[in-house]
């Protein structure tokens, strides 16, 4: 075997364990889900094998699923915008701070050390009828009855922002760190105010990081089901809750498979659009 051929094969040999793991743990289960989505649930609950389009027709044509899917995308979009608005200043502050950058980054990572469910449930102790906010306001005489702040869509969005904000901050921070600060100095030396130099130099250069953070927040937000379960009211649900109900409560694995693939496809299209215009390299950079 020639040296060229051997060198050409080496990357594939090195990659083969990872590719094998991805194939076994991602593509094979996905294939099972695809096959399941064409089966049918029978009256006794057992599944009828075969090739049936019923689940797909239902998932795509039923206004109920369309409504919940659109509502999920709406909640994810609002969460992403809020994360961007709150996360950018925080990332900017960390990137431009001198000396204590590592401590600030450590503080940013600190929430990841606590379970996501515990973090979500902590809002009950903060915003609940007997929570810190209501107790404080009543002690100060500002209100006489507890305010109803939990178990609605706003509480769901709040919980998601709490969960996703660090992802946004980290991505924007990585992007800001890569910008040469001499460019801002050059802009100010040419007569631009600090605000103008931010708007015309720093912000455009950090947009890839903002977009990568936005994509992560959107995809993770759209796929969540714990937050609406803990902080939502009777009506509040996201698409993942319907998948959970179809598979776990109704034991309708074929329909649940079709619904989960539908969500995967919608989010996949968004990732493809992102990749087309901004490239996945920025996302890997932000995660790295």
């Amino acid at each position: 075997m020639s040296i060229e051929r051997r060198e050409a094969r080496q990357p594939w040999i090195l990659l083969s364990p990872a590719l094998g793991a991805v194939a076994l743990l991602l593509f094979v289960p996905l294939l099972f889900i695809v096959v399941y989505s064409f089966w049918l649930r029978s009256a006794t609950g057992a599944d009828t094998t075969g090739f049936h389009l019923d689940n797909w027709i239902k998932a795509l044509s039923d206004p109920f699923y369309r409504y919940i899917l659109l509502n999920t995308l709406k909640i994810a979009a609002i969460t992403t915008v809020l994360c961007a608005l709150l996360g950018y200043p925080a990332a900017y502050f960390i990137a431009r701070s001198k000396g204590n950058k590592m401590i600030l980054l450590l503080l940013l990572m600190l929430p990841f050390w606590i379970s996501y469910i515990i973090r979500t449930m902590s809002w009950i102790n903060i915003l609940g009828a007997s929570g810190a906010v209501n107790t404080g306001l009543m002690a100060l005489g500002v209100i006489s009855e507890p305010l109803q702040m939990l178990y609605n869509e706003a509480a769901v969005i709040l919980g998601l922002v709490h969960f996703l904000l660090p992802f946004m901050v980290l991505n924007v921070y990585v992007s800001l760190e890569g910008i040469d600060t001499n460019l801002e100095d050059a802009a100010t030396s040419l007569g631009a105010t600090r605000w103008q130099s931010f708007l015309q130099v720093t912000l455009p250069l950090s947009l890839p990081g903002l977009a990568a953070g936005g994509l992560l927040c959107f995809v993770l937000g759209a796929g969540t089901y714990i937050t609406p379960l803990v902080l939502g009211g009777p009506r509040d649900a996201m698409f993942a809750n319907l998948v959970f109900e179809a598979i776990i409560t109704q034991l309708n694995w074929p329909l649940g498979s079709a619904l989960s693939l539908l969500l995967l496809m919608v989010l996949g299209v968004l990732v493809a659009i992102y990749n087309r215009y901004l490239g996945m390299a920025q996302l890997a950079k932000g995660l790295g």
Binding site: R41, A43, G45, F64, Y67, I68, P234, R235, A237, L242, E245, T249, Q250, N252
Partner: peptide, 18 residues
């Protein structure tokens, strides 16, 4: 159990405002 498939699915819809 005879009504489970229909009722559990309908409840999922009713719960969400349908």
């Amino acid at each position: 159990n005879g009504n489970e498939a229909e009722w559990s699915e309908t409840f999922s819809r009713v719960q969400r405002g349908f």
